[in-house]
C-alpha cells in the first residue's frame, strides 16, 4: 500500500529526513518510535503533503502512485488520514458540520453527490457510539475547549467516518489518560481490516499494548535505524534509545 523510497525532506532549509525506506502492506500495523526530534512528525506531515515540507529526494508511493504532485486534500481523497498530534480549533464549526464537509468534499472529488443527510446521521450515530462519544459533543465547536482526550477521540471519530486506506496516528497517546487511551485504541482496532493499514507514531510503548503492531521501526536522526517485531517496542521501553544510538555509531 505505502512505499517510501530513500526519502529526504527538509523544512525551511533544514534537512530532517535523511533517507527513509519503509513499506507498509494492506492489513498491517506499523509503529514508528524514536526520541524527540528524530523526525517522526515530519515523516507524518510529508506523507500527508504539508506544503512547508520540501521533498529533496526519494519518493512516496500510495498503491503504486507517486504522491509528489498531489496536494494535501488530493492525498486525503486517495485515502490518507493523519490523526494530528495537536488538532486545531475551528470556532463556530461544529464537529458534525466539519465531518460532513470533509466527507462531501471527498465524495465530490470522486464524482459522487453529497451523502444524503439520513445516511450521514446514521453513520455519525454508529461511529460515535463505537467511540463512546456523547451526542452533545458533536454539536460543539471543533476542538474548542476540548480536553486532550476529547481531541484525540475526535480525531479517531473522523478517521472512523472517513474510512481511510492508510491512517497515520501521530502521538495519539499523548495527553490521554488510561481510560481514554483504551477507548481510542479499541476504536482503532475495530477500524482495522485487511484492506487498510495503520502507522502508529509514538514516543512510548504504552499505546502499543493496546494497538499491537506487526512491525516496529526506530527512527533516529531522520533514518530508520532498526526494525523488528513488537518485542522491539518492549526493549525500547526498558532500555531507552541510547543503546540503539551506540549501536548505530559503532
Amino acid at each position: 500500500m505505502l512505499q517510501i523510497k530513500d526519502l529526504h525532506a527538509s523544512v525551511e532549509d533544514k534537512t530532517i529526513l535523511r533517507g527513509i525506506n519503509l513499506e507498509v502492506k494492506a492489513g498491517e500495523v506499523h509503529a514508528i518510535m524514536g526520541p524527540n526530534g528524530s523526525g517522526k512528525s515530519t515523516l507524518a506531515s510529508v506523507i500527508a503533503g504539508k506544503e512547508e515540507y520540501e521533498v529533496d529526494k526519494g519518493e512516496i508511493l500510495l498503491n503504486e502512485e507517486d504522491l509528489e504532485e498531489l496536494a494535501a486534500e488530493e492525498r486525503a481523497h486517495k485515502g490518507i488520514f493523519l490523526s494530528f498530534q495537536y488538532p486545531v480549533e475551528i470556532p463556530g464549526v461544529s464537529v458534525t458540520n466539519f465531518i460532513k464537509t470533509a466527507i462531501n468534499a471527498t465524495r465530490k472529488a470522486k464524482g459522487l453527490a453529497d451523502m444524503p443527510a439520513k445516511d450521514m446521521l446514521k453513520m455519525i450515530r454508529e461511529k460515535s457510539e463505537m467511540l463512546e462519544i456523547d451526542r452533545k459533543f458533536l454539536s460543539r465547536s471543533l476542538n474548542v475547549g476540548f480536553s486532550g482526550g476529547e481531541k484525540k477521540r475526535n480525531e479517531i471519530f473522523q478517521m472512523a467516518m472517513l474510512e481511510p486506506k492508510l491512517a497515520i496516528l501521530d502521538e495519539t497517546d499523548s495527553g490521554l489518560d488510561i481510560d481514554a487511551l483504551r477507548i481510542v485504541a479499541n476504536g482503532v482496532n475495530k477500524l482495522k481490516s485487511k484492506d487498510n493499514a495503520v502507522v502508529v507514531i509514538t514516543h512510548y510503548q504504552r499505546l502499543l499494548d493496546y494497538i499491537v503492531p506487526d512491525f516496529v521501526h526506530v527512527l533516529l536522526d531522520g533514518r530508520i535505524v532498526k526494525s523488528g517485531g513488537p518485542e522491539l517496542a518492549h526493549e525500547l521501553e526498558e532500555k531507552g534509545y541510547d543503546w540503539i544510538k551506540e549501536e548505530v555509531d559503532a
Binding site: F84, I103, A105
Partner: peptide, 16 residues
C-alpha cells in the same frame, strides 16, 4: 496555515 492544513488533510480544499 495549520487550520488550513488540517482541513486540507480531511479532504477540504483551501477555498472551502
Amino acid at each position: 496555515e495549520d487550520q488550513i492544513f488540517y482541513c486540507n488533510q480531511r479532504g477540504i480544499d483551501t477555498e472551502k
